[in-house]
């Protein structure tokens, strides 16, 4: 069984975002990381491969991005992926990213396609499902558990107000969330050394259109200062919540 994990290269979650003239994200000085949910997906993929009971032959990582995404791909290889593919173009919108991913992976015989449920930059939650529809394979969303059972995949998905165990035949797309792996794996020194020699294929972009245009960006209005209440006078807080904020 072959697993592919789709990775987004995103600004570190502590980044103070800036937009220059308001039309594009200012990348100056930004630290880049593997999108947190994708990192959990990669961690689970490695766990599945390392469990000798599973017939997993390889874990590939794929991204859509320029050369500046390569350190992130090397990090994924250091965590344990066997090989990497970078589609050489900027990520412009979810539809275009899914289209590029579909072209890059469609003829490679992947059985399990993992994506994070969301990216921490554009927060659309769209790429995994779009990719599944483009590849015409089943998809399961909000996945917090995944095991392999013969040629099927047993999945725990979160539903509103509970969980469901579902079984789906491969190939499939699973968009994963918190819970899929306990903690994201960190690369060890040996992994970092080995990653340098692992294959990172750069493939040219396919002809793919966008459906949306991000025309401008704004920062939210600053919040008014916090009203402080004395710890010995919680009744005052209750009064403020009832009569000022009117939320009780």
């Amino acid at each position: 069984m072959k697993i592919v994990v789709c990775l987004g290269n995103v600004p570190d979650t502590t980044t103070k975002v800036k937009f220059g003239d308001g039309t594009a994200f200012d990348k100056t000085g930004v630290q880049w990381i593997i999108n947190p949910w994708d990192e959990l997906a990669l961690t689970r993929a490695m766990e599945l491969k390392e469990d000798a009971g599973n017939p997993v032959s390889s874990v590939t990582v794929v991204t859509v991005g320029g050369k500046d995404a390569e350190p992130t791909m090397r990090k994924a290889l250091a965590i344990g992926a066997d090989d990497a593919i970078r589609v050489d173009t900027d990520a412009r919108d979810a539809y275009a990213v899914a289209g590029q991913l579909a072209e890059a992976i469609k003829d490679k015989g992947f059985d399990i396609i993992l994506t994070g449920i969301e990216s921490s930059d554009y927060n659309g939650s769209m790429v995994g499902g779009m990719l599944a529809e483009m590849l015409d394979v089943p998809s399961v969303s909000a996945v917090s558990g995944l095991t392999i059972s013969g040629s099927d995949v047993e999945i725990t998905r979160d539903i509103d107000g509970g969980k469901e165990q579902v079984s789906v035949a491969t190939p499939l797309v699973a968009t994963v969330q918190k819970g899929i792996a306990k903690e994201a794996r960190i690369a060890a020194m040996r992994g970092i050394m080995m990653a340098r020699k692992k294959p990172l294929a750069v493939v040219p972009a396919a002809e793919v259109e966008t459906l949306t245009d991000f025309v401008s960006f704004e920062l939210p209005a600053p919040k008014p200062p916090c009203k402080m209440v004395d710890a010995d006078n919680v009744a005052e807080l209750v009064d403020l919540l009832q009569n000022e904020a009117k939320v009780l």
Binding site: M130, A132, S141, D158
Partner: peptide, 24 residues
Amino acid sequence: SHNNTGKALAPRLSVKLKAAVGAG
């Protein structure tokens, strides 16, 4: 909805209908 079900259906529907998504 942008809940778990919506996040599962909207992207597939986007491709099927060739419809842009305003998400969340």
